[in-house]
Design a protein around this nucleic acid. Structure first.
Lengths: 187, 187
DNA sequence: CAAATAAGTCAACATGGCTGACATAACTTC
DNA sequence: GAAGTTATGTCAGCCATGTTGACTTATTTG
């Protein structure tokens, strides 16, 4: 391996370009762009382990998202999933059908409204969801542990405020409690 | 609109399921799973505005990523982009070709090594990159401003530590300085 | 000069988004 | 009870963006 890495790693001493600098977005705090990049890299790696585990079963990231939220919220309806994931019914149907056919999720008609298909993870589905959750929770836990004083509160609030304002109430309703309670709890 | 939202929003009072709780991943701090979900929602919305702006030009998220890093690091090589984005040469080639054909990016043969195609954003490319950066930087800036005491340092360290350990040095080399300098600067 | 490297290319395929149109069952309203 | 609305499912096709594998070309390096 000889080696891209060496050039990238040595950039501070030997920049790739004569001008040596980054093009700043005029009017934007250049520091913020660094956070934008960090978020890209963080998410890139956040999903990689789970994706690899899912591939063992021929599943993809879309299946993961559905299984995750169904496991977290037993009895979730299809319409709820559409709100959460912001995808179309047809996109959801494709992965949901596979999850049901392969025995990860079961559908039960709603008791009050029998048009509804309340979704539940099967035993097998719960086991997979837990395995994936554990992978991602470990990464998050490790990152929080090294983030410094007040990391839980700050991180919870930061991520929550990245959500589009109109969506925040909806997300908060899915969480175990108000965001401020979460921000305060593990600190 | 009558209305999914109402059921989701009322979950704390009227849970969808008799058991009323979430299935915890045994052995995993259940609070951490909340952070996993927050990261999903944060990223979901982080990308939406920029995606919409890109659609005006018939471009997608993949184009954005390439344009962003080329703009940030003028003279970047194809091999560097592959390392950063973790995609294959063929995937990159497709979007890069479009960006070059449409005049967002130009390629210049390397001076020392004429096999290289050093990439640069054109004036038009810089303008678009800035516009997108500004959108995302504003969102991040707003989220940081409401995240509480020490938000910059904690968030920078949190996101950086979400990156796979082996990749961190590479990312750090792309940033304007060591992560600790970034974590310390805007605090 | 031979080998290694940087980049590009062709072909085929998978995943997961999208639109539009239509079907079915069950609930709600008049 | 008929008519309208709602929850869900489905067919068909398209697009963006990822993948593998095989091969080419130009250039640098040993």
């Amino acid at each position: 391996m000889a080696d891209i890495t060496s050039e990238l790693l040595s950039r501070h001493r030997a920049p790739v370009d004569q001008s040596s600098g980054r093009s700043p977005a005029a009017g934007t705090d250049p520091q913020l762009i660094t956070f934008v990049e960090l978020l890209f890299f963080a998410y890139r790696d956040f999903t990689r382990e789970a994706d690899a585990a899912l591939a063992e079963f021929g599943l993809g990231r879309a299946h993961h998202r559905v299984l995750h939220f169904v496991n977290r919220h037993p009895g979730l309806r299809v319409a709820d999933l559409l709100e959460i994931l912001k995808i179309t019914k047809q996109s959801l149907a494709r992965v949901l059908k596979q999850l049901v056919d392969q025995g990860w999720i079961v559908q039960k008609a709603g008791e009050r409204d029998r048009r509804q298909r309340r979704l539940h993870a099967t035993e097998k589905g719960v086991a997979l969801a837990r395995r994936l959750d554990t992978l991602q929770a470990k990464r998050v836990g490790q990152a929080l542990a090294h983030a410094g004083v007040g990391s839980d509160g700050v991180t919870a609030r930061f991520l929550f405020n990245m959500i589009t304002r109109e969506e925040r109430a909806l997300v908060e309703a899915l969480l175990p409690g108000p965001i401020e309670a979460i921000a305060a709890s593990r600190s």
